[in-house]
Each structure stands twice: as C-alpha cells, then as structure tokens.
Design a binder for these strands. Structure first.
Length: 206
DNA sequence: TGCCAATGTGCAGAGAACCA
DNA sequence: TGGTTCTCTGCACATTGGCA
C-alpha cells in the first residue's frame, strides 16, 4: 500500500533531548502538521472525520503518528481542510506562512507534570518556541543531547531550578538561561507554585 | 523457467467503549 | 464533548506449491 513517510518526532520540552537527537534526522511530522491544519480550521477530530467521511479514530492515529495514511486517505482528509496536498507537504506554505497563532492553535503536549505548547518556526532548520508550564515538583531529570542544539529561555512566573553541567542555579521571573544541548542539564520546579517558561530551541549547529 | 492460484502475514482503517 | 485505546475486519503484498 502506498504510504506517507513519517518520522518519529518531537514530544515535549521535557523531552528536549529526544527533540535534539531527532532533529538531525528531521523529515516531516505529518501528525503534527495535520493537527496544526485541523486546529487552524477550528475543527475537532470528529468534525474533521465527519467532513472527510472517515472515522475520528483514523484522525487521532495519524496525529499521533501511529499510522501512515495512504495518499488517497490523506487527500480525503485535506479535501476537508483549506490546505492543498502540495501546501501540506511544503513546510513554508499555507500553515507555515501564518504569522499570528492563537493559543489554541499551538500543539500542546504533556509529559508528567510538564506541559508545553509548541510553535514550529517556518523555514530552514528546526527552530521552535516553547511555552512550558512546570507543575510543583516537576523534574525533567538529567539530560544530555548528542547534537549541537542550542536552547534558551526566560522565566515568566515562578521559580525554576536549572542545573547545567553540574552547576545549579535557581531562576526567578525575568531570569534567563542558555545552554548547548551537549551539556548535561536538568530542570526542576522545587517550589509550591507553577513555573512558567518561554524558551527557544534551535537545532542549528552552534 | 515462468505463470497462476492458494495461503499466510502485516497493517490501515473502522466501530465501540472508555477517560478527562 | 473531544481524544484515546482496544479489538476486529478487510485489503495488499509476499510466499509457497502446482502445473504447463
């Protein structure tokens, strides 16, 4: 059967290193792209499924990258959206050309007590803006990326304990951090209030 | 050796149920 | 109400065996 190639892609800010490692083999996150297109059209999975005359299960599985839809199936889905097949696969077209993104349009992923809303920046390279909420007690664990990714962020609210290459710092509102993914790093919210962070992630070589 | 039918296997997709 | 998971079904492809 004719299928759409897909790649195992990014998850959450807490999975920053999987993101960094996977970015080198960045191809095309079909599931995320479909989700963005669906949300941009203000449709639920069921509404889109109804329009495309397929089951909502199929939409869900595609968005989770748990199935590779046939070209015929993808055509039916995109026919229900204001996105052409060519625009869908052109990372700089249609969806990516957007300049304004509403909160609901951002892909939201959760990993334990860390929730991240993610915005992929169009164009060459894999840059993303992350809006992350660390619940009290949230801990990403110690991480090291094999890639030369760069990341940095600003604490908007609350406090975040940031440990980079064994050096621990507690950052408050307005404080910022930056690091290379190859350095071991860890993020913890040891406070009793939620910590809000806006960060940028780039897989461009340093 | 090449062709064709029968059989087995993997996976996309659907329906129903469940969870938040 | 929206999204996910479980389970089943059907289809496409690969393999195998029989026949000319």
């Amino acid at each position: 059967m004719e299928t759409i190639a897909k790649s195992a892609m990014v998850e959450t800010h807490a999975n920053f290193d999987e993101l960094a490692d996977g970015a080198s083999q960045w191809e095309f996150d079909l599931g995320l792209r479909l989700k963005q297109a669906r949300i941009a059209a203000h449709l639920s999975q069921r509404q889109l499924a109804l329009r495309a005359d397929i089951s909502n299960t199929t939409i869900s599985l595609i968005e989770q990258n748990r199935t590779s839809p046939s070209v015929a199936m993808l055509k039916r889905i995109l026919a229900a959206l204001p996105v052409s097949l060519s625009d869908f696969f052109d990372g700089t077209a249609a969806i990516a050309r957007k300049s304004i993104y509403r909160a609901a349009e951002l892909a939201e992923v959760s990993s334990g007590s860390v929730t991240t809303r993610r915005l992929e920046l169009p164009g060459e390279g894999a840059a993303q803006i992350m809006h992350t909420f660390y619940q009290p007690g949230a801990d990403t664990g110690n991480r090291v990326s094999t890639s030369e990714s760069l990341q940095g962020g600003v604490i908007v609210r609350g406090h975040l304990q940031v440990t980079i290459d064994g050096v621990r710092s507690v950052l408050g509102p307005g404080d910022a951090y930056s690091l290379q993914g190859s350095l071991s790093h860890r993020f913890c919210n040891t406070n009793r209030i939620e910590c809000e962070v806006v960060s940028v992630f780039s897989t461009q070589p340093a």
